[in-house]
Design a protein around this nucleic acid. Structure first.
Lengths: 224, 224
DNA sequence: CCAAGTTAGTTACAATTTGCAACTAACAAA
DNA sequence: TTTGTTAGTTGCAAATTGTAACTAACTTGG
């Protein structure tokens, strides 16, 4: 009675970045059958012979489609069902990745598009829903963690980081509170001597993630 | 080149409850091949013909194995890979469910065991890891949400609810802070006239979830 | 070289939230 | 009616947060 059925198993990736102070998602032109040539989340089949697990598959697909390994990558949520893919009952394990925009723009990828998450048209499959889940996640985690730092480059000024947080949260933040919170999170360190001159005003001190947080998220949640 | 491979697709459920003021997980005796007769998370194959999606499968499996539909059920995380199941490369979409202990104990299920999450022996597959993810999640959400209310019954006193929160969090809470937080969350309402006499002392007021939160989690996260 | 304009960053303080101790309330049992 | 026990409240100190007003450091234009 309990016989496994063939189910399409894929991985999709929501690669977020900041462009023009807006939260954007990376779309890739589909090169195969369903929805060929349409823009969709970068994704692909799980290769049971090749991938040790889904994270492996996500890394492989990211490298294939974008040519980079983002500094932050975690599982987002799994989307399943008979209705989401015209090929039949499918499972898509969605991943959530953050990257500095400069990395992706510099490694000029032809098939890639960067689109603001609040200006998306209707995408194939349930990809709008997947992106919505990713936006939800970054909104939530931006409230109490240093996650958005992975959207900045190696070094960045606090005013720029604040703009990134504001893009993630979709609301303006108060300067003093923001800086206090960053200080208290304790994940940043000033880069000695390095400043950023961005116009006719005082230059900003540059910061970077402390090395122990380079590949790890520090969650600081307040007690009950 | 990109050919889908047959991958075993299953759903596993972490059904949590409070017994003797401890956070416990529901285990089910396996009736089939790998690890037959061993205790493991209740789970089963996804039935592509029958289940519309994984949540559907989770509900079906819950009904089959426990005979109930918990008041809280959400996707937890997906566990994948070649190493986790002796049958081969597998995907398990894990679900996270909460239930009042009285419900499960009263509907006396033969094949079920209730085991404290901090007293588990080595389980089949990667089920220890899945349970750890569930405990992480309830720990996290217990800090800022009313999630543990789903572990209480229809009505409950605040002292009992506090004990439930403490079991979830693994630490003692201060009475006044706890009650203030519950008040501020605004998800509870006193049941008029109803009190609980639990010994030679003042009886406690009974509360219940406001009806608008019966099947929904209210997340209250503090701003940056 | 100095004044004006602009953004970076700090300080000071009020408002709010939290942790904690000490209280009162309501029951059972002796 | 006194005692013990837990329920629930009150009041205040400590910590955190929001906000305005400040100083700092630069560029540009006279």
């Amino acid at each position: 009675m309990d016989i496994p059925q063939p189910i399409i198993s894929t991985v999709d990736i929501v690669l977020l970045l900041i462009k023009d102070e807006r939260l954007c998602v990376t779309l890739s032109k589909r090169d195969k059958d369903p929805y060929e040539n349409q823009e969709a989340l970068p994704g692909g089949y799980i290769h049971a012979e090749e991938d040790r697990d889904c994270l492996d598959a996500a890394v492989r697909i990211l490298r294939q489609k974008t040519g980079l390994l983002p500094p932050y990558l975690e599982q987002l949520k799994t989307f399943t069902g008979a209705a989401r893919d015209p090929r039949g009952w499918s499972i898509s394990v969605a991943y959530f990745a953050l990257v500095d925009a400069d990395l992706i723009l510099s490694s000029a990828n032809p098939g890639l598009t960067i689109c603001p998450v609040d200006a998306l048209r209707r995408l194939p499959f349930d990809h709008n829903e997947i992106i919505a889940a990713a936006v939800d996640r970054i909104r939530n985690k931006s409230q109490y963690s240093s996650l958005p730092c992975y959207l900045a480059g190696e070094t960045f000024s606090l005013p720029r980081l604040q703009k990134i947080y504001e893009a993630c949260l979709g609301e303006a933040l108060h300067k003093v509170s923001f800086r206090r919170k960053m200080d208290e999170l304790g994940v940043l360190e000033a880069v000695p001597g390095q400043t950023e001159s961005a116009g006719a005003h005082r230059p900003a001190q540059m910061y970077r993630l402390k090395s122990e947080f380079k590949n790890q998220l520090k969650l600081l949640v307040r007690g009950l």
